[in-house]
Design a protein around this nucleic acid. Structure first.
Lengths: 340, 340
DNA sequence: GGCCCCTTTTGTATCGTTCTAAATGGAACG
DNA sequence: CGTTCCATTTAGAACGATACAAAAGGGGCC
């Protein structure tokens, strides 16, 4: 590809030592004499040498990269996660190999096997919906440490980092209960996605603990986008009595619901309470500011990267399951029910 | 690092042919006999062979990766851009090496030299503010093709892909002029950032063409965030006559300004017109929906990746400058001035 | 001078591929 | 039966680095 890339041999020739010596200089070995080191360093600079890590990795049978596979960076949650991963990996001298699946298991197959050919030291994978753990194991092999993020896979010889969806949703629901709500919907998300199931479960836990039966018509599905959520607002009000509050699948849905409520002349934070999930930056500046469950995806990214580095350094470690706690952030979109 | 990674030699031994033959099978060479191919392929599957692209790249003096360096993925504009880059690179069989600078030139140095050691076929760089082109050239060397995105660098032997900030802002301003506005502010952004300067220039162009003088008090700075923008709203109204419309630095600023206007009892899209820049997803669903200039960062990412691949395939190509047109999207936040 | 020891340097094999040129082994031909 | 030719296969040297063991050079000591 290149006209000519400068190599160890060029430097060695240029200052009349052996390749081995130059290599020792590069790695700051105490073996080389001060004078020689000076001479070699000058030549390195003169010729504009750049280290070839691939060659070194090949010889040493090591790797200095970690693969990161997510659905889609345009989802801010994953973008933040990726930023956290890259930050930590970079600080440890590793480089991030990026791949995205777009929620397609087929593309996930392709991406994983391509990335795997680059022999990453480890893989951080947020699996596409409906992934088959055994199949994925077949693709990446048993060598490479994998950390699964966000969605559990059936066959789990792998590290797993999850948000505590269930407890997070439970906290949001309990908060609404404390404010005096009794008719609390769960709004948005696809019921067949695992994160939605878990959040619904947390919602159910809280209601059950309060001795309140769950009405199926208060479980409303919608695609997890603002627009779709806004369009589904009406579904909450088809039957009497309507709910007085909704725990939303995530912030996008919650913001959409607030739009939908406004359009019906119902003021969120006054006539109806709304909670979100994720605490995206907008949540703090919406009108009203959104009460939500913070997951801090950037910190999760750092955590994932740290764990995978740990695994790389100590391959004998036993896979573990980590549940990141999700904390409630109370703002203005939740209030006591009207006529309370 | 690994207990043992299966290599060509293992396969060769396993089915009693030479390494060379196995290599030919892997690359679908027409030279190998059908029977041999079958035998080898079976053995490949049996042992769970995975190709080592690093070794192949070393031998062939090629590379199958492209480095992508951005400020920060948590900015949705760059996240979308990255998604577009990765999509196109992935489809071409390349892998994306990620790096982020956080707008620090020092970190940019570090990140670039680390990435460069992995010998990427090309680099897509959205430079940190105040980058020194000559210095960067020193780091990456003259070998590797570089595409600079979004911010021009002084020393330009490199491809450059820019948004047409100036014309975009000009279009937005012309749109407001056509609606009948005469007192049009430029709101938000840091005046020392190049993109802000360019957009202000476009604003000035349009006003000048309409024979309208620019009032300095209508150029308001603010950090490019919703919150900061909302806080700066008052700065538009300190003097009489106040502007009747504002061209905003970007959508975040525009949304913030609309919040600030609402808080003053001034209804955007009725009493005051606002335009944004970027067309982030929220722009379409805000209230009122935001008139803005669409830059389609994902498409820009695809474009950047395509161009760099082109450069990789044809290193003799002359560096070029590409200005992506930015199109006005008219929605509800712009309207004729009151009492018109 | 010969011997030992210590510091510094180096030759050579190796990592897992691909490339080159050359070898192998039939079949076809005269 | 010896050639030629073709289709396959292969040995061995790269690629750019590192590891290992061994060599070289200089003191110091008897």
């Amino acid at each position: 590809m290149n006209p000519h890339r400068v190599t160890l041999a060029d430097i060695a020739r240029g200052c009349d030592v052996s390749r081995a010596t130059v290599s020792l200089v590069l790695r700051n070995s105490p073996l080389v004499a001060a004078g020689t080191r000076k001479k070699v360093e000058a030549e390195l600079k003169r010729q504009g040498y750049v280290y070839n890590r691939a060659a070194a990795n090949l010889r040493q049978r090591t790797s200095s990269s970690v693969a990161l596979v997510v659905n889609d960076l345009s989802n801010p949650f994953f973008a933040e996660f990726a930023a956290g991963v890259d930050e930590t990996l970079g600080a440890a001298g590793f480089v991030t190999l990026l791949g995205s699946t777009g929620e397609s298991t087929e593309q996930q197959r392709r991406v994983l096997s391509t990335l795997n050919e680059h022999a990453p030291a480890g893989i951080i994978l947020s699996p596409a919906e409906h992934s088959d753990g055994t199949e994925l194991l077949g693709i990446v092999g048993a060598h490479t440490p994998v950390l699964v993020f966000n969605r559990q896979l059936s066959s789990a010889h792998w590290d797993f980092l999850a948000l505590d969806n269930r407890r997070g949703a439970r906290r949001a629901t309990e908060h609404l209960l404390q404010l005096g709500h009794r008719r609390i919907a769960f709004f948005g998300g696809h019921a067949d996605s695992s994160s939605c199931r878990e959040r619904r479960q947390g919602h159910a836990d809280a209601l059950q603990a309060a001795g309140i039966a769950i009405e199926p018509q208060w479980l409303v599905e919608s695609a997890p986008t603002r627009l779709q959520a806004a369009a589904q607002t009406g579904a909450l009000f088809v039957r009497d009595p309507a709910p007085t509050a909704a725990v939303c699948y995530n912030d996008a849905v919650a913001l959409g619901l607030m739009l939908g409520l406004n359009a019906r002349g119902c003021r969120p934070g006054h006539d109806f309470s709304v909670t979100g999930f994720d605490d995206i930056p907008e949540a703090a500046v919406s009108l009203p500011a959104l009460t939500t469950v913070a997951t801090d995806p950037r910190a999760r990214g750092r955590q994932a990267a740290e764990r995978i580095l740990e695994r790389v350094r100590h391959p004998e470690l036993v896979p573990c399951e980590m549940h990141a706690s999700a904390e409630l952030v109370v703002r203005d979109s939740s209030c006591p029910p009207p006529h309370y």
